[in-house]
Amino acid sequence: NNDALSPAIRRLLAEWNLDASAIKGTGVGGRLTREDVEKHLAKA
């Protein structure tokens, strides 16, 4: 759900053309954090 994404995370996902549903969020309530996105990018 994009409503739970911060503007910074939305921008990062758009910049790298990533799908938020493909990344497991570790923040409060399962929210994506910058670290989650960076770890996903490191694996790719």
Rank of each mutant, 00 (worst) to 15 (best):
Asp19His: 09
Ala42Val: 08
Asp19Val: 08
Lys24Asp: 07
Arg31Gln: 13
Ala8Trp: 09
Gly30Glu: 05
Glu35Trp: 10
Arg34Thr: 11
Gly30Asn: 05
Val37Phe: 03
Leu32His: 01
Lys39Ser: 10
Asp3Ala: 11
Gly25Val: 04
Val28Met: 09
Ser6Arg: 05
Leu5Ile: 13
Gly27Glu: 02
Leu12Asp: 01
Asn2Val: 14
Asn1Leu: 13
Arg31Asn: 08
Leu41Tyr: 09
Ile23Met: 06
Gly27Tyr: 02
Glu15Arg: 12
Asp36Ile: 02
Asn1Trp: 12
Asn17His: 11
His40Pro: 00
Ala14Phe: 07
His40Tyr: 15
Leu13Pro: 00
Ile9Leu: 12
Glu35His: 09
Pro7Leu: 11
Leu12Gly: 00
Leu41Gln: 04
Gly30Pro: 02
Ala20Leu: 08
Gly27Ile: 02
Ala8Ile: 09
Leu41Trp: 08
Arg11Ile: 12
Leu32Ile: 15
Ala20Ile: 08
Asn17Asp: 09
Ala20Trp: 07
Asp3Ile: 11
Ala4Trp: 15
Thr26Gln: 03
His40Leu: 10
Leu41Pro: 01
Thr26Ser: 09
Ser21His: 10
Pro7Met: 09
Asn1Gly: 13
Val37Thr: 01
Ser21Val: 08
Lys39Glu: 11
Gly27Ser: 03
Ile23Val: 07
Gly25Gln: 03
Lys39Arg: 14
Asn2Ala: 14
His40Met: 06
Leu32Gly: 01
Ala44Lys: 11
Gly29His: 06
Leu13Gly: 00
Glu35Asn: 07
Arg10Tyr: 07
Ser21Lys: 12
Asn17Trp: 05
Glu15Ala: 11
Ala14Ser: 07
Val28Cys: 06
Asp19Trp: 05
Thr33Ile: 05
Leu12Asn: 00
Gly29Asn: 12
Gly27Val: 02
Ala14Val: 07
Ala14Asp: 12
Arg34Glu: 11
Ala4Leu: 13
Leu5Cys: 09
Asn17Val: 04
Glu15Phe: 15
Leu5His: 07
Ala20Tyr: 06
Asn2Trp: 05
Pro7Tyr: 06
Gly27Phe: 03
Glu15Ile: 14
Leu5Glu: 06
Gly25Trp: 04
Ala14Cys: 07
Thr26Arg: 02
Leu32Trp: 03
Leu32Glu: 00
Leu12Pro: 03
Leu41Phe: 07
His40Ile: 08
Ile9Asn: 00
Arg10Gly: 07
Asp3Leu: 10
Leu5Asp: 06
Ser21Gly: 10
Gly29Ile: 03
Glu38Gln: 07
Asp19Pro: 07
